[in-house]
Computed example of a mutant assay.
Amino acid sequence: MRHGVMLEQDTLASGDLDLSALVASFDQYTAFGATDPSEMAERIGNADCVIINKLPVNAELLAALPQLKLICVVATGVNNIDLTAAKAHGVDVVNCRAYGTAAVSQHVLCLMLALSTQLLPYANAVASGRWQSARHFCFLDYPIEELAGKTLLIVGHGELGSAVGRLAAALGMQVEIAERPDAKETRSGRVAFATAIEKADVVTLHCPLTPSTQNLINKEVLARMKRSAFIINTARGGIVNEQDLADALRTGEIAGAGIDVLSEEPPRNGNPLLASDIPNLIVTPHTAWGSQPARQRIVDQTVENIQAWKAGEPIRQVT
């Protein structure tokens, strides 16, 4: 009998998804809206498959669940799982891929456009009565930039980075792809990170969080960027040193930033980028991926992953 347990259903579905095929994939399906890490072992129990999003899976947990055979991650990132321990315990790990390309790329574009057009300052000014009392038909208190002709630097040129590049090119931007910061050589079609960062008008991050990308964007890098530059992060919070970015925005070292991810989510312990005095900063709550079609694709891919695993031919396998 196949028993599947979903531990974080509320992070994926809010009543607007069809979960029937997922439920039907198991003889027994148990779903929890949210789960504390301390509850994981008890709730997984004798299930042979667990479905998670961001909950941590470590060696200690795996050792306590000898019957567990499959971890389905309803996301792409698997940095919350001890993959070495999973392999040692004979637990397969599968994830979802390319489900949010349209949603994330349009969110990146939205942040770029909002920053360049000063969308929020103008909307807030209208809400506060500034337009109603204006002398002329308009007011131009906040400088508006055009993205056409500007240089976009993509850091991480996979599925998402490529999609953002296509959208930016349609706006007339010059698109450049950064080489890995620690690379010994620069591949054809890419530009060295150290020099490209100095020329970029917009930097957008799409790389995974690894030891080599932790704090990739720090005060030294920010100091080399144009004072008119924007930085967009829809990848992982730890790629950007958040205190350094807050300081750079306050001092005008760069012109603006659009952030969809933080180093701790939710930021219950505060975060330097949540201060109210940081100019030209837009922070969204990790929602770039969250369109209804993208979330339904996650469910559909998870069903595919489970069915392929049951047939002995796993797909989208991480370990």
Rank of each mutant, 00 (worst) to 15 (best):
T30P: 00
T30K: 11
T30I: 10
A31W: 09
A31R: 04
F32S: 00
G33I: 01
G33S: 11
T35K: 01
T35C: 11
P37E: 06
P37H: 00
E39I: 04
M40R: 07
A41C: 14
R43E: 08
I44Y: 15
G45C: 07
G45P: 10
D48Y: 10
C49W: 08
V50R: 00
V50N: 01
I51R: 00
I51Q: 07
I51F: 08
N53F: 02
L55Y: 04
P56S: 09
P56F: 15
A59S: 14
E60Q: 12
L61R: 00
L61G: 11
A63D: 11
A63H: 15
A64R: 15
A64Q: 12
L65E: 07
P66F: 07
Q67R: 04
L68H: 09
K69R: 15
K69L: 04
L70S: 05
C72D: 07
V73A: 06
V74A: 04
A75V: 04
A75E: 00
T76W: 02
T76F: 12
N80F: 01
N80T: 00
L83V: 00
K87H: 09
V91F: 10
C96H: 08
C96D: 08
R97N: 12
R97H: 15
Y99F: 14
Y99W: 08
G100K: 04
T101M: 10
A102I: 07
A103F: 11
A103Q: 01
V104D: 03
S105R: 07
S105N: 01
Q106E: 15
Q106K: 08
Q106N: 13
V108G: 06
L109C: 05
L109Y: 06
L109H: 06
C110S: 09
L111C: 01
L111W: 12
L113F: 02
L113R: 03
L113Y: 05
L115H: 00
P121N: 03
P121G: 05
P121H: 13
N124Q: 04
A125F: 03
A125Y: 10
V126W: 14
V126I: 09
A127P: 03
A127M: 05
S128H: 02
G129A: 04
G129H: 15
R130Y: 14
Q132H: 09
S133H: 15
S133E: 04
A134G: 05
R135A: 15
H136T: 08
H136L: 12
F139V: 12
L140A: 15
L140V: 12
L140N: 04
D141M: 02
D141H: 10
D141F: 11
P143V: 12
P143A: 08
I144T: 03
E146R: 07
L147H: 01
L147A: 01
K150Q: 14
L153C: 02
L153I: 14
L153M: 06
I154A: 13
G156K: 06
H157Y: 15
H157M: 14
E159S: 11
E159L: 13
L160Y: 11
V164W: 09
G165T: 15
R166T: 09
R166Y: 14
R166H: 13
A169Q: 13
A169V: 11
L171V: 12
L171D: 04
G172K: 12
